[in-house]
Amino acid sequence: MKYYYRAIALCGFISLLSSISPAISIQPSPILIVQNAAEDLFNSGLAKSEAGDIPGAIADYTAAIAINPNYAKAYNKRGIIHGRYLKDYPAAQADFDRAIEINPKYADAYYNRAKVRYLLKDKPGAINDYQKAAEFYQKDGKTEDYQDAMKHLKRLEQ
């Protein structure tokens, strides 16, 4: 019985504190809930993509973007699917453009956009994007990715 009264007292104290300061609230943050939902959909999209469920992966990435319109990684992954599996290069480029707009230092998005630009016969754009990708990979210490971007860049510059 003694513990029951302590629990009631503690609940009352927490309720009192939460009404005084929103920082002590026991309610989850709506922003955190939204981000978790977007991340869950992103992870589901990854799993579906790996399992070969391309329409399901696109749907999950699109839903993640609807929840968080600034989710650069979701745009990048959706762009990869548009390009690699659906051969919809303009849609892929639009997704990579948006990922780069959100995060101008997103090396993977530059690298992926370079591939798409090359397929769209935009060699100068592809060269520029490979240069940017290599620059950011080098700054991030991603040696293998840097070397890969440089390999593609040297081929295009010949």
Rank of each mutant, 00 (worst) to 15 (best):
Y118P: 14
G52E: 11
D145R: 11
T143W: 03
S15I: 01
P22Q: 04
L17I: 12
I31D: 10
I20S: 12
A37N: 13
Y130T: 03
A99L: 10
D129P: 08
E144Q: 11
N112S: 13
E50H: 03
I26R: 11
A63T: 03
D122W: 05
L10A: 11
Y130E: 09
P124D: 08
R84I: 08
I81L: 14
L153S: 01
G12D: 06
A74H: 05
K2R: 13
K154R: 14
A7E: 05
A114P: 11
P55T: 04
L153D: 09
F42R: 00
D140H: 05
K139F: 14
L17E: 06
N36K: 08
K132G: 05
A149M: 06
Y130R: 11
E39V: 13
D40L: 12
Y110D: 06
S18G: 12
A133K: 14
K132P: 12
A72N: 12
A38R: 00
K132V: 00
N112C: 04
K48D: 00
E157F: 13
Y110G: 08
V34G: 05
R84W: 08
D95R: 01
N112R: 07
S29D: 15
Q147F: 07
A99H: 10
K48N: 01
K154G: 03
E50T: 06
I100L: 11
G45R: 02
R113P: 13
A134R: 11
Y61N: 03
L16T: 04
K73E: 13
D108I: 02
F96V: 01
A72V: 00
R6A: 14
Y106C: 12
A59Q: 12
A94N: 01
P30W: 07
A114H: 04
S21A: 11
H82F: 14
L86D: 03
L156T: 13
P104I: 02
Y71N: 05
A37Y: 05
Y110E: 09
Y4W: 10
F13K: 01
P104Y: 09
A23K: 06
I65A: 10
K2A: 03
R6K: 11
A94M: 02
D40A: 07
H82R: 10
I54E: 05
L41N: 03
G79I: 02
S25P: 11
T62M: 01
K121E: 15
S25C: 04
P55R: 05
F96N: 02
L32D: 09
V116C: 11
D145G: 10
R84F: 15
A23F: 14
S15N: 15
S44D: 10
P104F: 11
I54W: 04
R84T: 09
N112V: 01
I58Y: 02
P124R: 15
Q138A: 08
Y146S: 08
N103W: 03
L153T: 11
R113K: 09
R155Q: 06
A107M: 07
C11W: 00
I80A: 08
A23W: 13
D97C: 12
L17C: 15
N76F: 05
D53F: 13
A63H: 01
N76D: 10
Q27V: 14
I14C: 14
D129H: 06
P22T: 12
Y4Q: 06
I33R: 13
G83L: 03
Y106Q: 02
